[in-house]
Amino acid sequence: MSEPQESGHRIINPRVSFLVYLALVAGVGLTIVASYQNLGIFNPILAVAIALVQASLVALFSMHLKYSPRVSKLSVGSGIFMLLTLFAMVLLDYMSRAWGSW
């Protein structure tokens, strides 16, 4: 990585945008197809996993996060961290309110 990448100011080649686009559309198709298969507990897990991959693609390439200043990446990281904190700490209460029946 060279110096100027800190300025967060890059032109993304449209070719990359199209590839990302194709991957995203494929992701939508894949989610729908997967949801019609009986995968038991893995149905929602797979759906969220695909969504996470899609979201990462959008963030990294469409939103130029890959070429953004470190602090911008840091803010995304802290967002994910806080979101997980919110989920985990609320779940802590709900799961332990009724062990087993959750």
Partner: peptide, 13 residues
């Protein structure tokens, strides 16, 4: 959640 100790959250929480 320490604001909610008597509100009915689980004892473990």
């Amino acid at each position: 959640a320490h604001h909610m100790f008597i509100m009915g959250i689980s004892n473990y929480a």
